[in-house]
Every structure is written in C-alpha cells, then in structure tokens.
Design a protein around this nucleic acid. Structure first.
Lengths: 335, 335
DNA sequence: CTGAAAGCGCTAACAG
DNA sequence: CTGTTAGCGCTTTCAG
C-alpha cells in the first residue's frame, strides 16, 4: 500500500523555501510575492502536487464531508434524493457518505453516531419508521452538529427541513379518484409515527370533506414498515376487501408497488375495477399494469435543497437562529 | 460550529496518566496493566469518548473509506450494487463515498482523481460508456492504489473484477425467445466500448448458432449512451421496424425500460406481437406492460463481493499478484 | 515578504 | 508497565 505523494515539505526543500511560504503560496495568500507564488505553483503543477485533505481536516477541524442517513438506498425515491444531494456536494466540494437504516431505529442510531464520530461536518436524514426516541439527535443538534431533515421530519425538533407538499399532493390525488366517480376510497399508509403519514392522512380527510364524503376509519390501514415486508400489505388488503372499497389511495413508494404486486398475485382479480392512486417516484410508473395514478415527489430537488441548506449551515459563522421548512410541490401523473 | 469532543489528552490529564498510556489502554495493548485499562476504559465510557478518526487517519495513512464511481445512482441496478457495497463496508468499518459520472469520461476522471486525492483507501468502479483512455487509471493502480472493477470492466487492466455471466444470461434469454417460435430476433445494445456489450453480443450469437439461425448484423443496434437519452432508442427502433423483427433482446436496464416506454408511446402499436427480453434489475418488472422477460443481475451480491475483494486488497500486507475475476450467474424472470 | 515554531489528535519508538 | 518524545501534513501565529 505504498503510493507516496508529495508534501509541502518536498516542495519547500526543492525550492529552498520554508513550508509555511509554500503553504501560503498555494493558498494564494496576500503576503506572498507574485514571483514566489508563480514558482511554487509551477513546481506544484509539475509534480502534480495534491494537498493531503486529512492533514488539512485535522488542522481545520472540518472534514468537508456530509453524511446521509436513509432507510434504503435501492429505492427509487431515495436514490433520486441522493442524486440531488450528490450534485450539490460535488459542486461545493463535499464528499457524500452514505448509510442506511432499513427502517431500524437501532441501526439509525448507530449510523448517526458513527457519522458524527467520524467527523462528517453535518447530516442529511429522514427518520426511520421505527424511530420514537429523538433525544440523542436533539443532543447532537444542541451541541452544534448541523442536521437537516427531509421527507420524514420530526415535529419536535427545530431545524432546517425539506418536505414535499404531502397534504396538497394527497388532496389532488383523492380528488381525482372522487372525480372518477369513486366513493369508498381506502387509504393504505405507513407508520403512524412518521410525519408524512399524518400529513397525507390530513390531505385525504380534506378531500373527502371538500366533497361531502364521510370519513370512515375502517378504510384506513397502517403498515408499520411501510411495505418493506409484503405480508403487511396483504393483510391490509384482506381487511379492506371486507369493506367493499372502490378506490384506494396509497401513501408510499414501496406500498404502492407492493399493492400492485399483491393485485397481480391473482388472488384479487375480482378487484379489477378498483381505481388506484398513490405516492411513487418510479420512473416507469406509466408501464405498470394495473395502472396507477402517481403522486410524484420532487426527489432530486429535495436532495438538492436539503444539501444546500446543510452546507449553508455548516459554513455559517454564527449559529443559525431561524430555521425554515421548505415545502416543495408534488406532481400528479394520471394513469 | 463548536461541538468540542474529548481527546486522549483530556483523559490523560484527568487520570494523571500520559497520553500514550491512555492510547494504549484504549487500544487494549498488551503492555498495559489490567487495572489501568479498566480505569481508562471506564472513564472513557463515562465521558463518552470518541477517538478522532481524522487524527488516526493522518497518523496511520489510512482513511477507512472507499470510493464508488458509477454512472448513475438513481438506477435500479446500481443502487442495488451500492446496497451490497454498503452492507460490507458497514460491517468492516469503512465509510462509503459515492460519486457519479453520468456516462461522461471527463467526469469519471475528475471523480477518480478527487477520490484518490481525498485519500479514500481504494475504489470500486464501473466504466462509463464514453471511456476510452484508461492510462491514468493504470497509473494509479501501478502506484499501488487498489481499484476493483465490477459490471463494466476493462480487459486491458489486471485487477480484481466482479461481473455477471453476461454471455450465459443472454444465451438463456435468446434461447427462450427462440423457443417461443421467434426467428428474426433483434438486439438492442449499448456502447461498443463496454465489456458487457461484447459479452452479451457473444451470447446472442451463440444462441442463434446453437439453433441454426443466421446472424444478421442489420438486426443489431447500438446506443452510444445506453439509453440515457430516449431518442437513441427511438432511432434504433425506427431502423429495426424496417427489418421486420419478431422479437428483441435488449442489453441494459435503461434500454429495456426505454424500449417499453417507446412502445407505449403509441407509435408502434402494430408491433404488439413482438416478444421482448432484456437485462433489467427492476423489482417491479412483473408489473410492466408490455410484458418483458427479464435477465436480472445479482446486483447486491456483486456489490458485496466487489467490496470484499477491495477491502481484502486494501488490508493485504503484500501487493496482490494474482487477480481473479468473479463471475456471478444471472437469473431469467419469464414474463 | 519570508521563516521558525507550535499544534490539530493520535500512535509508536525508545527509555526507563 | 508507563512516560517522553517525535512526527503524520498542514496552517498559522509570531518574529524578523
């Protein structure tokens, strides 16, 4: 493992200068003569000098890396978010370090503490389905560690947040179902602990109310793990069938595709007339059969804005006092 | 930005020990008495001491991070690979740093040099469609920088490689088309520069030959950017239509879904009888319409094995002399 | 304008 | 078994 690189010392020695002069020349300090600068820069270029970022990090107490904590990388929505984050990070010279929780709060905690102790400069995260205890996250934040939340955000914590307009997105989709003549609209959704679950439920209720339809709790089915396990969904469907629903609104990517899979599994062929709408960021949603009306989140944009806020916070000289929550519009892709 | 942490010095001072003793105690060195160890460990636990990995990295000349260079994160295949990589990295205490090229060799080069200069301990990569010049990669490798290739690998370079059995996977799929009675089987594929393109073409030819069918070059269409731009595919289809093909084998995830999209775009409704098979790692391929027979790569496993090889190479005391190429079986998911 | 020296937090000879 | 010291590569006072 011996691929040696040049150091500032090497340059200094070669040019008969002191390391500090070389360092300053490389950083284009005002105290260095144009002449010296040129000599140093030319030589550095010639030997293809690369500053050692680890040494710099140690000195500056800053690693120029940001951590991402999500439930699952191999998920259309999250991978699009990462894409957005990466685009900003690249431009601003930050490294992106990834970790996933698979919806486990235990794993979430380990990942966060690991990323913190590995001196990432800040974190971008979305809560896992299981999470209830946020105290350790609050502690990190109160110690000044920058964390920006996106998608599934904690209400109790004051921080930058970037979310989709879940209420409106849901409203639009449910309205679409109603406009199609449906009346008994089921709602398949994720963990009650998550912010998005509440926001979407609200949009669902609003749409019903706006159209004078009654709200029926029996038509709401929660999947603790957001469809990570297909059985969750199958159980929910079995219960819904008894309720005689004529349409369904689904609150999550995995839940939506999982529901379609379950339909396809033949058991429910008689349900062909049920109209389906749901959140999904699949780019091939128009190929699906049964067809589905999709509520798509601006995932790339969400990652982008979250990363920008995080970097702004990291680079801010003063502790941020006013945190904002960015709300991005969703789009409805009709079947 | 002031979240101070305890250092070894703090512990030393508090316990009236020297920093080196504390360091050794924490690392469970044999030269430290059980008693001292206990005192140190207890105190460290109490104040929740976390070693500063940056300082350690500087000292050890090792960052415990590995870089990933892929064309696109938001792609089912690659995100599954990342998932596999992450699972190994987590277990072995490495951070995973991600970058994407969007098939640009320019971007690829920048990313690689960046990851190298940012002292990742090694790289996992798949070549971009555009790449022709590998000399700088060879230079890095010859300087002892560990790089493991997966999926799209360079033939000229001797290194660990992990690939799918593209030849066999293609053979099986084409055989399936032939068994369905098809005779004029088109082949839609990616850049000629990529290893996978050649391997799959070979499998295609073999299947034809094994069944006594003629090979017709007019039925082969290359898409330089692997379907990154939909127009590539539409042009190819327009040409294929003239050839009167009755089935098609598609060599890539984006190409496969892109082809289906193009079909859906109505222009080709008369082609409904054309049977489709192709590489894709979509987890919802069974929901697609038109239907497609999928060749699926063991993406997670590929990432896992590549990461294991890389870490083995990183941690090896000696320069590796014998590089192996791991070939993993694909699976055929019939429509 | 340039150099000497200290220090970021950690580890590892070397001495005792 | 423990402490002293030097040093990883870089930046940054402080002196000149």
């Amino acid at each position: 493992m011996a691929y040696e690189n040049y150091t500032i010392k090497d340059i200094a020695k070669a040019l008969n200068l002191s390391p500090s002069t070389v360092s300053r020349a490389l950083r284009d300090s005002y105290e260095i003569s144009a002449e010296t600068k040129q000599i140093v820069l030319e030589y550095a270029e010639k030997i293809n000098y690369r500053a050692n970022p680890i040494a710099r990090s140690l000195k500056e107490r800053k690693s120029n890396s940001i951590g991402i904590v999500i439930s699952e990388i191999a998920n259309t929505f999250f991978s699009q978010v990462i894409d957005g984050i990466e685009s900003v990070a690249q431009e601003k010279n930050y490294q992106v370090v990834i970790s996933q929780t698979n919806e486990s709060s235990e794993r979430e905690r380990l990942n966060i503490e690991y990323l913190y102790s590995r001196s990432t400069d800040g974190l971008l995260m979305t809560l896992s389905s299981e999470t209830t205890d946020l105290s350790y996250i609050e502690r990190l934040i109160s110690r000044g560690f920058p964390i920006v939340f996106f998608d599934r955000v904690p209400n109790q914590i004051d921080a930058f947040k970037v979310i989709a307009d879940n209420k409106q997105g849901t409203f639009d989709a449910v309205q679409y179902l109603i406009d199609s003549g449906k009346r008994r609209i089921a709602h398949l959704t994720g963990s009650q602990r998550l912010s998005i679950t509440g926001e979407r439920l609200e949009g669902y209720k609003n749409a019903l109310a706006a159209n004078g339809l009654p709200f029926n709790p029996d038509l709401i089915k929660y999947c603790e793990y957001g469809g990570l396990h297909l059985e969750e969904i199958e159980i929910a469907i079995a219960e819904l069938v008894k309720e005689n629903y004529d349409a369904i609104f689904i609150s999550g990517d995995k839940l939506s595709t999982g529901y379609l899979q379950a339909m396809k599994n033949n058991a429910y062929l008689e349900l062909n007339t049920i109209k389906i709408a749901g959140f999904t960021n699949s780019k091939v949603v128009n190929l699906f059969s049964p067809t589905i009306t999709a509520v798509s989140q601006p995932a790339f944009e969400m990652g982008k804005q979250a990363a920008e806020l995080l970097i702004r916070q990291i680079e801010s000289k003063y502790a941020i006092e006013e945190f904002e929550t960015v709300v991005l519009p969703t789009s409805l892709i009709k079947e």
